[in-house]
């Protein structure tokens, strides 16, 4: 068990050094980490056996919240954009979750999908507010009042994202170890017994749903300022599907899983697009099939076996 934290720390160090070796990777990795946060949100709900096919909505809510604060209100400092985006997406998660966590299985998945497509439609149709399908621009934000060049800001953003990854990852890890987090798995295995124990499944799930929306919001805010442009596509159902795929591909057994999945997918995508502009869809698809066939526990399974983790008791099965 001791080996796991070491491997994770090494992975984080590797991420921190990667841009020095290949500068253009910095952007790809920033976006990968951003999507990793959203995928982590999806993974949380997967632990309770709930598949959300609409989580890209909260990613988009975070991104649009950051864009609004920056462009419409004129407050454009990343250290304000980020908490604002997270607060707005958590609030959205709380409101939507209050209705949706009553449902299970396919109904939960489809209702999430439906709500997210409403958000997508609003983002693409409210022209005067959201800029329609052309989206909204975000200028390079300041950082604690310092105005930086784009290149410097991107670098700072990347390392802030890595710090967030470590801190938020640890917090989520603690949450999952807490009674509130443990109850999530119980919702999946035996919800009736959970209720008999006096724990409300509804509030357990609502807390998880709100946290998962907030995680997606972190990702949305990072992606928005990294890309510099926010588009309704962020909320499209294919993006939601992508997040579920990322979570499953990376493995939901550990916090690192969704991030590993996200980085893997973004790198495959970048390589495929660079070397086979016309067949990139195919290459990404084949890579996914390979992981699903040969690594049933996701990429995180590889890390676990390297760390010698063999005890999978008390874990959620998909």
């Amino acid at each position: 068990m001791r080996a796991l934290p070491l491997i994770l720390a090494a992975g984080l160090a590797l991420l921190a050094l990667a841009p020095l070796a290949a500068p253009y990777l910095q952007f790809v990795l920033t976006v990968a980490v951003a999507k990793g946060f959203a995928a982590l949100g999806v993974a949380l709900l997967l632990r309770a056996g709930l598949i959300s096919l609409g989580h890209a909505m909260f990613f988009a809510v975070g991104a649009y919240a950051a864009a609004f604060l920056a462009q419409a209100v004129g407050i454009n400092d990343f250290l304000l954009l980020l908490p604002f985006a997270v607060a707005v997406s958590a609030l959205a998660g709380l409101l939507v979750g209050a209705f949706l966590v009553r449902y299970r299985a396919i109904f939960f998945a489809m209702l999430n999908l439906a709500v997210s497509m409403v958000a997508y439609a609003l983002a693409s149709k409210l022209y005067s507010i959201t800029g329609g399908t052309d989206g909204l621009r975000i200028d390079v934000p300041t950082l604690m009042g310092m105005s930086l060049e784009k290149a410097q800001f991107d670098q700072a953003l990347y390392y802030i994202s890595l710090v967030l990854l470590a801190v938020v990852g640890w917090l989520v890890h603690r949450y999952l170890k807490s009674p509130l987090g443990q109850a999530l798995a119980a919702v999946h295995t035996n919800e009736v017994r959970l209720e008999y124990l006096g724990v409300s499944a509804w509030s357990t799930l609502l807390a998880a749903y709100t946290i998962s929306a907030a995680l997606a919001g972190i990702g949305g805010a990072i992606a928005a300022v990294a890309i510099g442009h926010v588009l309704p596509e962020y909320a499209f159902w294919t993006e939601s599907g992508h997040l579920v795929l990322t979570a499953v591909l990376g493995g939901i057994a550990g916090i690192a899983g969704p991030f590993v999945g996200s980085i893997f997918l973004e790198l495959i995508h970048t390589v495929a697009v660079g070397y086979a502009a016309e067949a990139w869809n195919l290459i990404v698809g084949v890579a996914l099939l390979a992981v699903i066939f040969f690594l049933p526990r996701g990429l995180f399974g590889l890390i676990e076996s390297a760390a010698g983790v063999k005890d999978h008791r008390g874990e959620t099965e998909l």
């Binding site: 952007f27 790809v28 588009l231």
Partner: peptide, 22 residues
């Protein structure tokens, strides 16, 4: 070098950056 715009904005931007930094 041809880049497919169907991959969405962030893919397009990352390709643009990758090529520009080369």
């Amino acid at each position: 070098t041809y880049v497919d715009e169907a991959q969405g904005a962030e893919g397009v931007i990352s390709e643009y950056r990758r090529l520009s930094e080369d």
